[in-house]
Structure formats: C-alpha cells, structure tokens
Design a protein around this nucleic acid. Structure first.
Lengths: 341, 341
DNA sequence: CTGTTAGCGCATTCAG
DNA sequence: CTGAATGCGCTAACAG
C-alpha cells in the first residue's frame, strides 16, 4: 500500500487533503468545488481553485468511483477499427461522451463472440456506467452477465426482436431486401455477391438472396471472404467471380471497402464499370461517392448512430427509471443510386 | 454512498467478503487466489474458485486500483480512427496489452494539441499505468504534466531529439528525403504534392521539398488539405493541381487514402496512371498494393509499431528502473516501387 | 500457506 | 454554505 503522505511532500501526487490544507478548508469543500461549484461560495471557490492549481491536483477517479459507485466510464466493443465502417460512429459517440464527462474503454472483438465474452468479463471489473456493443449476437454467458449487472446497455448497428436493453440500428434484412428490390427494379437478373463472413454481412446477403428468390431470381455466385474488409479481399472476391464466369451484370458487395477492391480488380482486367459490370457497395457515403466510377451504395449514417447511442446512454444514466420505456431506434438506411449500378 | 451489504443479498453485486464467506476463508485469500493463484494451496484455491463461480463475483478494479496504486489501464491517444493508418498499430497494441491484463482507454485528439491537453487531464485522473501518444508535438502544459506524473510513456509514429520518455517511430524527414531521392533517381523533375495539413505530413512534405531543392528541383505546386484523409480530399487535391496545370509528372501524396482519391480523380478525368501521371502514396502495404494501378508507396509497418510500443510499456511497468536506459526505437520504413511511379 | 490490521482517496450522509 | 464522520472494495505489509 502506498504510504500515507498528505504533507505535500514532493514526489507524491497530491490528494484532496493536500489541496484542502493549502486552501484552508475541509476536504469535502474541495470535492464540492470540483463537482458542484455552484454549491460553494464564490470566495471559497476561488481559494480552492487556486490551491488546485498550486498543487497541480488531479482527482483520483478510482477513489471517486469507489466512493460514489459511478465510474464515468463507458465501454465500447467493436469488431475492428481497420477500414472501419464504424469509425464515424465511434468518433461521434466518444466526442459526445467526452463532453458529458465520460471516458471510453475500447474493446476489439474481431467479430468473435468468445472474444467479446472475455473482454466483457475484464471490462465489468471497471463497473462502467454504460456499455455499447456492436450487433446483437452475443454468447449466452455474456447475455446472462449483462442481464445480471443491469448496466445501461446499447446494442448498435443492428435491430432484433429481443434486445438486451436499448437498441440503435437498422435491419440488415431490410437492407438485403431493399437492394434486391432496387436491382430488380433496374432490370438486373444476373446478380453475384461479394461478402465478408461477418454475421451482419451474411444476413444482408441472405436476405438479398431470399428476396431475389421470391422473384424467381437466383444469384449466379457468392464469394464469401474472411473479415476484415480490405481492398485485397474485394479484389480476390471479384477475381473468383470472374474466373468462374459468374459475375453476371451486377456484383453486390457487403462493404464499400470491398467494393473499392472490386473496382480495382475490374479496372485491372479491363472490365468497365458500370457498362460491363455494375457494382453496389454498402457503408458510408463519402467512400462510395468518391470512388471512380462513383458507386451506388446503401448509405448508413454512422455519426447519427453514434450520437443516438450517446444520447440514449446518457439519458438512462441520468434517469434509470427510463428502463421501463426501452429504446428501440431504427435509424434506417438509404439506397443511393449513382449510375454504377 | 452505497449501503454496505455483504450478506449476499440478491440485487447487490457480490464483494470479496461475500466470496470469502461462501468459501469459508478470509477475504485476502480470495484476493490472492485471483491475483497470485500459485501462492495458495490447491485445495483452498478450488474452494475459492468455486465460490467465485457460485457468487458470479467480478472484482471491482476501482477498489483494486485504489489499494494497489496500479490501474491496469493504458491510455492511447490517436488523432482519429477514420480511414486510419493507425488502425493496425492500435489493433496490435491493444491485443498485446489485453493479453497482459491491461485495458485500453481511448482518446481521440483530432490532430489538436489543445484537445490532447484536455483529454490528458481527464485521463490522468484514472492514473493509467501507461500512456501512448501519437507524435511528439504536445502543448507545454501537457509536457509538464507528463513529466511531473512520471507515468511510463511512449510517443509513437515519430522520432525526435528529446522525447518525453520512450519513443517508437520513424523519421518523417527521412521519409521525405527518401521519396525525393527515389523520384530523382527515376528521373522525375516535375513534381507536385497532395498533403494533409497534419504536423507529420507537413514535415514529410517539407523534407521532400528541401531535398529536391538541394538538387535544383522545385515542386510545381502543393495542394494542402485539411485532415482527416478521405477519398474526397484526395480527389480535390488532384483536381486543384490539374486545374492549375501544375500536376507535373508525378504527384506525391501524404497518405494512401489520399492517393486513392488521386487515382479516382485521375481516372475520372481520363488521366492515365502512371503513363500521364505517376502517383506515390504513404502508409501500409495492403492499401497501396491493391489499388489499380498498384501504387508505389512508403510502407510503414503498423503492427510492428504497436507491438514495440506494447513491449516497451510492459517492460517499463514491470521494471521502472529501466527508465535509466530510455528506449528510442527507429522502426524505419521502406520505399516500395510498384510501377506507378 | 493463511489471517490481521490498516489504510488507498474520495463522496455520501447528516449536522451545524 | 461548510464540516465531521464513515465506508466504498480491495491489497500491502507484516505476523503467525
């Protein structure tokens, strides 16, 4: 145990007590000055703040957490940050949380529920005030743990019938169906797919296939590739389809990054887009819009998801009673036509 | 203050005391079983672990931090996670740290030293066991704070003469110079630049220009654009150069993402790469290698940086005496020729 | 190998 | 508006 040392000796990080001594007040007054300044007389406040500066005091949040049972920590679990469609969401989310005084614990799960389970156990030790998960697929152990601890929780980037708590996302089935309708409406009948083998990508894929099937159309082929999404993977995907003579009229990609790879492969083979082959992406606008040729895509508003998640979490943290009116927000998506599909 | 409730009542998260009671041992034995199992008799250990399972006990790390002055937290500051050249580094770093039992506090600074300063103040409240900063430019306040607290620190992705503590990166001046030499060696004399206005990008840029100048070559033009790097920004950069008739024979980009944008803009204008215009990137291999045409680039080994940072931090945390032999690791870079420049 | 004692630094009561 | 007392849940040091 660190030796007690409130005597302002050099080499020790100062505590509330040191500041109180310098300011000539009691420790609790320092605490209040920092936490609820309006509850302290202006004159006192000045003296305390001066002492804080003089001692270079930085509150120990571990002690604060322990005493108050509030950690001011939010855990965010993501599959990956590489080439990430989640980047905008995380950016918006962390920014909003930072403004509200919350810090962000990052967990990278690599699309693996077991990994998520391990990370969750570790993270729960911090008693985060909120948790954000990507998607709705979690191990049974994780689900039980989360239910038991009752920490405000948002599952993001997906929709499902029985969320663990709050939910902010969109239906991947609806995306698949919308893409199918879109393609059918354009008169395409010879369709192929390039998809990552991640859970949500697969669901978009399957929904697309099912919807096409409802119209008597079967995809020519599907190239399924391991996450994460990279240009190389997209190229490989189209290469497989072309080599099998199964690319058809339009290739649907499970992410814009894959689509970029597909464009590169097409260009390198002299396949013209969209004349010889149309391409569709999925993701954020800025990527698809600025490819050449610009990609048609399904546009997801990442920052909006991030902000919605932050607001939901902050509201529930401030007012736990809101648990009785569970949030289930469908942020939707938008099929954006851009001449390449 | 939360009411004391060690009587294993439902609705309360169990504590060490609850587990101890169930296992019929003292609290400290539970603590030891979890922290240093080898220091506990096998039979005792079994009983304790069984009690841990039975109670679904999860140690409160805030309490642990407070008692032991070790938070098992590492703070990582990044400019951004969007389109990020840092993704591989962060991935490798967090994975290695997670294995060692450390969790990751994420801070997004947006290339701003003031933002970094604010985040640093907040993060220091957690008393992290280690801090990773991107780059070597920090506010004076931040430098002083960091020096005072003495937390093991790594500045990554850059090199400088007087690091705050440990340093893992490469010289951006060397990159600029190497690119200049490379271009001169290929016989290029009419060079233009597309760069982000971030500190390290600018230094690569300036070094490139200075080195060219040493050979009597002045760049035709430089398109300087605001961070973060996106396809759109790269397109805009080349558009400006072409509109000014100043693209020359080769365009050097401060990141692969920008380079991709440049390729897109070139393609959309019918400018052939590399015949009409050569393009160079900067970043990780997988992006540049799989563009079409494949880009020549300066390759940085992101995962290697991440691993080196993790090892440095863990070594110093385990053995603070190592502070006397400060680490300064130049991971270098590699100019990769791929026919497009 | 196990237990006892004594805080870590702070915030939550409740008084004044 | 300010202060005193108390304990959050855990671990470091010793002792046995």
């Amino acid at each position: 145990m660190a030796k007690r040392c409130s005597s302002s000796r050099a080499g020790t990080t100062p505590t509330l007590i040191d500041v109180a001594r310098v300011a000539g007040v009691s420790p609790i007054t320092v605490s209040r000055t920092l936490g609820r300044p309006e509850a302290v007389a202006p004159a006192t406040r000045r003296r305390v703040l001066e002492a804080v500066r003089a001692t270079a005091y930085v509150p120990n949040l571990a002690a604060g957490s322990l005493a108050s049972s509030r950690s001011r920590l939010v855990a965010i679990f993501l599959p990956t940050i590489a080439n990430s469609i989640f980047a905008d969401t995380v950016q918006a989310l962390t920014e909003r949380l930072a403004v509200a005084g919350y810090q962000t614990l990052l967990g990278l799960t690599g699309y693996s529920a077991e990994q998520e389970e391990r990370l969750l156990e570790a993270v729960l030790g911090r008693r985060p005030d909120g948790i954000v998960l990507t998607g709705t697929e979690h191990s049974q152990v994780s689900r039980e743990r989360l239910a038991r601890v009752g920490i405000p929780l948002v599952e993001a980037w997906d929709l499902c019938a029985k969320p663990l708590d709050m939910l902010v996302g969109f239906s991947h089935e609806a995306v698949g169906a919308a893409v199918a309708q879109y393609l059918l409406g354009k008169g395409y009948r010879r369709v192929s797919l390039v998809s990552l083998d991640d859970p949500r990508g697969l669901r978009r894929c399957n929904s697309l296939i099912a919807t096409l099937a409802g119209h008597g159309v079967a995809p020519l082929a599907t190239a399924l590739l391991p996450a994460p999404a990279t240009l190389a993977v997209g190229r490989e995907g189209l290469a497989r389809l072309l080599d099998a003579g199964a690319a058809g009229e339009v290739v649907v990609c499970s992410s814009d990054t894959l689509a970029q790879g597909v464009l590169a492969e097409a260009a390198s083979r002299g396949v013209r887009v969209p004349d010889d082959l149309a391409v569709m992406g999925f993701g954020d606008l800025s990527c698809a819009a600025h490819c050449h040729p610009p990609l048609s895509t399904v546009r997801i508003d990442g920052p909006r998801i991030g902000n919605a998640v932050a607001e939901a979490l902050l509201a529930r943290i401030a007012e736990p009673a809101l648990a009785r009116t569970p949030l289930r927000l469908d942020v939707g998506f938008e099929v954006v036509e851009r001449g390449s599909a």
